[in-house]
């Protein structure tokens, strides 16, 4: 009974909030500031031609730098929580599934490279490419071809950190231009491609780690 009252109370509040918010949103006039114009006006100096990529890696590239730090923090926290535990031997799936996964993996790598390259002028980029690569690792794990991970060895740690280190180094180096991440327009395209390439590898490893370090026998 008490529980029902609580549920009814919370849902009523939620509903009231939706109506309040909807009413206020319908009241809204046009905004004073429109960022579409400056985004487009500086696109030629941004080093890329896709506006979202320009915002993500140039105009607001600092957000993206901190966001990679957030991903690394989540992985570190995950490692601190799960600790070292033995990884059970992976169970092999049906041979047909294994063969399919083997066939899919090179295709996924090609797709990832394409996404990375396409990011400069159409939807795509390091995150999408990294996610596809990580998905390939998860696929291989699920069919029993890639065992789970028990502890991050030095090589893996370097790989996980490399993309962020590269990004941080470029951001710091550009202090010579006047401020953090202030790309000289002529070099912006190359630097952004460099950062995105490093991020693709590290993001793939981080995202795969978030899965593979969790994949172990419970209670071990």
């Amino acid at each position: 009974m008490k529980r029902r009252v609580l549920v009814a109370f919370v849902l009523t509040l939620a509903l009231a909030f939706v109506f309040l918010l909807a009413g206020a949103m319908l009241d809204l006039g046009p905004t004073t500031i429109d960022l579409r114009a400056p985004v487009a006006a500086h696109l030629a100096q941004s080093g890329v031609t896709h506006p979202v990529t320009a915002v993500l890696l140039n105009y607001r590239g600092y957000d993206t730098l901190l966001e990679i730090a957030v991903l690394l923090v989540a992985l570190l926290a995950l490692l601190a929580v799960v600790g070292d535990a033995p990884v059970p031997p992976s169970r092999a799936a049906h041979p047909v599934l294994q063969t399919l996964a083997r066939l899919a993996t090179p295709l996924m790598i090609v797709v990832a490279v394409y996404l990375l390259w396409a990011g400069a002028f159409r939807p795509g980029g390091a995150f999408q490419a990294g996610a596809v690569l990580a998905a390939a690792a998860v696929l291989l794990h699920l069919v029993g071809l890639q065992p789970g991970w028990s502890r991050p060895r030095l090589g893996l740690r370097i790989g996980l950190a490399a993309g962020f280190v590269l990004f941080l180094a470029v951001a710091t180096g550009l202090l010579t231009q006047g401020s953090l991440l202030q790309y000289p327009p002529a070099a912006a395209g190359v630097l952004i491609l460099l950062i995105e390439s490093g991020l693709t590898v590290s993001l793939a490893l981080i995202l795969a780690s978030l899965f593979l370090f969790l994949s172990r026998e419970e209670g071990a």
Binding site: L35, D63, L71
Partner: peptide, 18 residues
């Protein structure tokens, strides 16, 4: 508007991490 779109991409990655 590309600015909120880029913000949402950042937000999605943060949500994945969390």
């Amino acid at each position: 508007d590309p600015v909120p779109q880029a913000m949402v991409l950042t937000g999605i990655v943060v949500a994945v991490a969390a």
